[in-house]
Amino acid sequence: MSSSAVDGVPSTGTNETILICLRGNSGAGKSTLARTLRYRHGRGCALVGQDHLRRILLRERDKPRGLAPALIAQNVRFCLDHGYHVILEGLMHAARYRSMLTELRDAHRGRTLFVYLDVSLPETLRRHDTRPMAAEVSPDHLRSWYTPRDVLGWPDELVLPETTTLEQAVERIATAAGLPLTGRDTDILPAAP
C-alpha cells in the first residue's frame, strides 16, 4: 500500500488498475453482469460481491454501523493493491455505503466507474421469478428491500435503464471504464495441479 493519502485515506491501486462498482436493487442483474464482465476480461480481474461478504462470510444484516462496508473496502483495496482490476457488485444502498464508496473512489489511483442498474419494481419481480433463489426469497421481501433509483448522483455515474441488454451493458461499461475484453474459455479454467 502506498504512503500517499487523500484526506488521510491511503491511496490504493495503481494508475493501471480499474475499479468498476455495479449497484442496483436485488434482481437487477448485477451478479450476472459482474460475472460476464470478469469472464470477458479474463485473468487479472477480481470479483468482490457484497452478498458473499455480508451474508455468507459475516452473516450480518445490512445495518448501520455494520462490519460489511469495512470488509468490502478491505477486499477491494487488497485486490487493487496487488494489481488486479476489481468488479465490486451489490445493492450497497447509498444511505449506508456512500461514505465507503466515496473513500474508494477518492483513494483509487486508476480508473473508477460507478454503474447503477435502474430497474423498476415490476421488472425486478419478473426477473426474480426466473432466479434459483426465488424459492427462498419472497416477492414481499423484494418489495421491502426495494429502493427506487438509489443513484449516488455523481456526475460520472453511469445509469443503465432496465431496457439495456446484457451485451449492451457489457460493452458500455467496458468502454467507459477502459476494461479490455480479451478473455477466452481457457482463462477461467482452474490451473492443472
Rank of each mutant, 00 (worst) to 15 (best):
V76E: 01
S11R: 15
T130F: 06
V159F: 05
L53T: 07
R127T: 03
R61K: 11
M133R: 13
A176K: 07
D150F: 12
A191N: 03
V159N: 05
P155Y: 09
G178S: 07
S4W: 03
R98A: 15
A107F: 06
T164N: 04
D150Y: 11
R23G: 10
L158E: 08
Q168C: 02
L160E: 03
H93L: 10
A176F: 03
A134T: 05
R77I: 06
V151S: 07
G29Y: 02
I87M: 11
C79E: 07
P139L: 04
E162I: 02
R105P: 00
R184T: 13
T165A: 05
D140Q: 13
A95D: 14
A174V: 08
L71N: 02
D51A: 06
S144H: 08
D7N: 15
L91F: 05
R172I: 01
S4I: 05
A70W: 01
H93Q: 12
G44P: 09
G42S: 12
P148H: 06
R77M: 02
R38P: 07
L125P: 11
F114Y: 14
C45P: 00
E89Q: 11
R55E: 00
D106Q: 14
D150G: 10
T17W: 04
L152E: 13
V76S: 01
D62Y: 02
I173F: 13
G66C: 06
T147A: 14
T163D: 03
V86H: 12
Y84M: 14
I188N: 08
E16D: 08
L91Q: 09
T32S: 09
A177E: 08
C21Q: 11
G13A: 11
L117I: 08
H141C: 08
M133Y: 10
T164Y: 06
E136A: 09
V170F: 11
T14G: 09
T124R: 13
L101A: 06
A135P: 00
I56F: 06
L19P: 07
L57C: 05
E103P: 00
R109K: 14
G83M: 09
H128R: 10
D51S: 04
G49I: 01
D185G: 02
N15S: 02
M1F: 04
